[in-house]
Design a protein around this nucleic acid. Structure first.
Lengths: 191, 191, 191, 191
DNA sequence: GATGAATGAGTGTTCATTCAT
DNA sequence: CATGAATGAACACTCATTCAT
């Protein structure tokens, strides 16, 4: 029997890595980072504990990998403006995209949100988070500056906080939280 | 020395209990629930490990006790209106109080968030949380109804979400988050 | 029931500590440092794994404690000279004492030797070992200087090496190794 | 390409085996047996983990193979005398060779010591060791008998012990231990 | 009421070894 | 012959909880 080709090995690795990350995502969201053990993840992924360490250096690296993956999807939604400030239409479009993703990939983002919200995770990804959030906040600050408000930065950070709060409440209670009505109110009163 | 009366014993017990809860609050907020051990709490409270179990059935019961105590302080801030809707002044006063508490009892609210963000623990206090939050939301819905908005419930839930988002952002980054400016914007645009 | 007094606790601790160190000494000597697990020590000491950590911060600390205890006995044998060089009689007396201890506390020193000889242990105690050995080597160097040899330091280090070699061989094969005859040859040829 | 002959296969096997043993020797000496993993050896040898088990039954077998190979080199240094006792010149030459090997094959001898010092592993090679050492001791005993000393066997064993002690001290502290001066003193005083 | 020694199940992690390919 | 994914038993260490005193 000839040994597997490099490509075969690579496919196995990609596959397994994804399985582990998915299992981790679900459990970290359900039980928190600290109360989810590597054993639990291995069991859910249907593999041995030891194998996880074949793919991730340690628990922390697994967490960071999961969260980073989510960040990358998030970044993909940020509008490209070539340094120009956002128009009102563009900002509305961005908000719509964000809210749409929230509802269509609900399960994923719920898991994702409950991981990122955990203080222990925050510490791990603080730097990444800041690096991603700052450009978004700046984009919004530029927008409010054009609008001529007195303190554009405060407006930008408030808009960020509002989006966080809305997402959080929607995640906790998706059945009753009136997401669309609230989006309209937000656009009307705050853009 | 005469033997202590029953009441004296009772006072000593209450005192001890408060000491333990205070020590727990400080450490849980500083280090998170999982990384704070019963030993650490005992040391900070100046007593032995075993004694804590004389006052609380287990670690979980201690956490619930601490959080419940905080809830009671939260409830105390809700304005008494005898069924009357809030005036704008009363609502502004309530928001001011809430924000003040956020900054002065920062430690407690950080703990509160770190607990609420932890799914497994959240379940322990879910019912309590709902029982507290509903009246507040209703109060706000009544306020918006008086203001004559089209969908007062959506406005109320949005205001709740905004407060959550602001609190969360302030907790994460208390140094830079422009809490007071944002409060002013909130009052001006959303009340 | 009243709680144990501080002295009672202290006695329990001393007792347990000694039990653990004795179990560790025997096993480390029989199986080497790396292949002796904390579990094995706990089993031999008749206690739980966890308890060992109530007495020693970690495995390394236990090893260091065991070895340090042996060093202290070793140091007690070094002759007091108040800065004066050793006379031949004193040096012979010191050698006799050393060899006597080797034979009378044979079991202990065998264990002790096989621990100290392990490279992994060496690294842990290198500094201590040097601090103990240097004065002895200096004492011997002074002795050889008085004797008028060309390179007293080399003589001193050689004498140390010879004592090591003799001890080692005696430990390995106590039945056949002619310790007393060799001691006589040593005194005759090297002092 | 024509298929390789059986002899070619055999040569490749020998070559591979040597590569693995060399990698093992270097790593065992540098990091100790326990902290050197099969993975590390495979990486250094430029092959896969699994392949090592094609050549050696297990880690222990690899260690024994390496040590045995070293023994054979050691044996090669023993002077051939056809049953005749050693002359002084021959013995000096033997000592010189031994000391030279100590410095030039430092790595191997460090491994040798780290293994011999480890009681459990020692048992694996005990018999081999004895079989090698006895002839050497006898050769020395014969030498001292010719010299007319009272107890040649004690002299022989002492010389062996001294060589052990010197080697050990040199291994521990190769930078400072005055190997050459000590060799001269040994020859002058003890041969 | 109060102590802290003691337990035991749990944690993250490592690694010799196996085996399908 | 050769690969490296996969296993599982082991490791050092932690900690909530119990209990004799």
């Amino acid at each position: 029997m000839s040994p597997r080709t490099e490509q075969q090995f690579s496919e196995i690795r990609e596959q397994r890595k994804a399985t582990i990350m998915q299992a981790g995502l679900e459990l970290f969201a359900q039980y928190s980072i600290e109360t989810t053990s590597i054993s639990m993840i291995a069991k859910r992924a249907g593999i041995s504990k030891g194998l996880i360490y074949n793919y991730f250096d340690n628990k922390e690296a697994l967490i960071v990998a999961i969260v980073t993956q989510g960040f990358e999807e998030f970044i993909r939604m940020i509008p490209e403006t070539n340094g120009q400030p956002l128009t009102k239409e563009q900002l509305i479009h961005y908000l719509n995209t964000t809210f749409d993703v929230l509802t269509t990939d609900f399960q994923y983002w719920k898991l994702y949100f409950s991981i990122v919200m955990q203080p222990a995770v925050m510490k791990l990804i603080e730097d990444q988070l800041m690096a991603i959030m700052m450009p978004v906040v700046m984009l919004m600050a530029d927008y409010y500056e054009i609008q001529g408000v007195a303190n554009p930065m405060a407006h930008a950070r408030m808009l960020g906080a509002i989006l966080d709060g809305i997402s959080l409440n929607y995640m906790i209670d998706p059945e009753n939280f009136p997401l669309n009505e609230i989006k309209d109110i937000l656009i009307q009163k705050f853009l």
